[in-house]
Computed example of a mutant assay.
Amino acid sequence: MNPIATKAKQWIDEKKDPRSAYWQAGLEAVMDLFLPHLEKGKLTPVRPLEEKDLSVFKAALERVDLSPGLFAAFLPPVVANTIIPPDSAEELVRIEKEKPSYKLIILRPGKENRILCIEISDHAHRPGMEIFQSGALLGTFDYPTHDLCIMELTKTIRAHAWEKDKWQRNDYIAYTLNWFEKTEYLGKSDVSVNENYSFFHRPTLIKTNRVDALFLMIYEILHHRFQEDAEDVCKGLTKAGGKNYGTDMTVSASHSLAETSILDLLNIVKTLNLLDFKEFTTAENKAFDHEFARTVRKISSDLEAMVVAYSYKKR
């Protein structure tokens, strides 16, 4: 017996509807396939997107608001069209087989996985979502139009997918960073965010103030970004310093990269009016200058340490 049938049989033995049991088991199998490529708290395409897919992805990204423990996959037609409900579950069919389907699958892992399957294609005759848990169909949401389906994503995902456990400091940080990276990518200031969970909007969540919160967000984003692209970053900085790392030229290059990267993110904050710098008090302006200089030093130091490690690795 294949894994899908095995899981479905377990739920059917618990008196769950076979149609929903098989559909959830199939959706979980799909997510198992893509999980190694997904990052918690982020809506991730399961394969490179074509130009025609980008507008749909961006529309979803703007409205999909995920708590930090959720996995979310964006399925373009080349994948989504192969994932269809069982023939016996006609009521779960939202789009004709020959039409391009765009699906979101959201998984809340736990003792009893909860999974949301959302059809957002503007070709769907019935855009909307199903919510499953333990082989049971908990509920459905149907929308008369594609646009309304997209607009309602924020509310329905928060209500039916977000974890109910108390958040920790790392959760607030992860949630805020994910929001800002979406904002940066989309170039929009109205990306869905629950300000009660974002330390940028409510610095007291992590017992800080708005200046420190701003630079913490910037530091964390750049630190992760440079770590993810470590080899290319190190190659560039090593080239700037010649054969021997530690020269003034290389240290200067690290400082320059840190400063430029911080200024780029600050410019996004200013351009999108995410923070009104004109409202800063004299004390906050002084703190801003201090934190800017400190964050430049901290990131520059991180970069220098990365290049040292890279140079040893290359020997």
Rank of each mutant, 00 (worst) to 15 (best):
residue 217 M to W: 02
residue 185 Y to A: 15
residue 176 T to F: 00
residue 224 H to D: 13
residue 239 K to W: 12
residue 194 N to L: 11
residue 205 L to F: 02
residue 193 V to S: 07
residue 235 K to H: 10
residue 234 C to Y: 00
residue 177 L to N: 02
residue 193 V to C: 11
residue 188 K to M: 14
residue 187 G to A: 13
residue 206 I to D: 00
residue 236 G to Q: 02
residue 228 E to L: 14
residue 177 L to D: 00
residue 237 L to F: 03
residue 195 E to I: 14
residue 212 D to C: 07
residue 190 D to M: 13
residue 177 L to T: 09
residue 224 H to A: 13
residue 236 G to R: 04
residue 231 E to I: 14
residue 223 H to F: 10
residue 204 T to P: 00
residue 242 G to K: 09
residue 208 T to F: 05
residue 184 E to P: 03
residue 205 L to G: 06
residue 217 M to V: 07
residue 178 N to G: 08
residue 181 E to W: 06
residue 227 Q to C: 11
residue 205 L to S: 02
residue 205 L to H: 00
residue 218 I to C: 05
residue 200 F to N: 10
residue 221 I to H: 01
residue 211 V to H: 08
residue 183 T to N: 07
residue 192 S to T: 09
residue 174 A to H: 04
residue 212 D to I: 08
residue 190 D to P: 05
residue 223 H to K: 15
residue 177 L to E: 09
residue 234 C to A: 14
residue 178 N to H: 14
residue 196 N to T: 12
residue 185 Y to P: 04
residue 185 Y to R: 15
residue 195 E to V: 14
residue 185 Y to H: 14
residue 179 W to L: 11
residue 238 T to W: 08
residue 232 D to R: 09
residue 182 K to V: 13
residue 210 R to A: 04
residue 230 A to T: 10
residue 179 W to Y: 07
residue 219 Y to E: 14
residue 208 T to D: 05
residue 202 R to E: 12
residue 198 S to D: 04
residue 188 K to T: 05
residue 180 F to E: 08
residue 189 S to Y: 06
residue 214 L to M: 11
residue 213 A to G: 08
residue 226 F to K: 05
residue 181 E to Y: 03
residue 238 T to H: 09
residue 186 L to A: 08
residue 230 A to M: 11
residue 226 F to D: 01
residue 235 K to F: 13
residue 212 D to W: 03
residue 231 E to M: 13
residue 235 K to M: 15
residue 220 E to Y: 01
residue 214 L to H: 05
residue 199 F to W: 00
residue 209 N to G: 14
residue 209 N to Y: 07
residue 235 K to W: 10
residue 194 N to D: 13
residue 218 I to L: 11
residue 183 T to H: 04
residue 214 L to A: 07
residue 206 I to V: 06
residue 226 F to Q: 03
residue 214 L to R: 08
residue 177 L to A: 04
residue 208 T to N: 05
residue 237 L to K: 01
residue 189 S to Q: 11
residue 175 Y to H: 04
residue 242 G to Q: 10
residue 201 H to I: 01
residue 219 Y to Q: 13
residue 232 D to Y: 09
residue 178 N to F: 06
residue 203 P to W: 01
residue 215 F to C: 07
residue 190 D to S: 10
residue 191 V to Y: 02
residue 237 L to Q: 01
residue 176 T to M: 06
residue 214 L to W: 02
residue 185 Y to K: 15
residue 240 A to C: 10
residue 233 V to P: 02
residue 219 Y to A: 00
residue 181 E to V: 15
residue 236 G to D: 03
residue 190 D to K: 10
residue 205 L to Y: 00
residue 241 G to I: 13
residue 241 G to N: 03
residue 193 V to T: 09
residue 180 F to I: 10
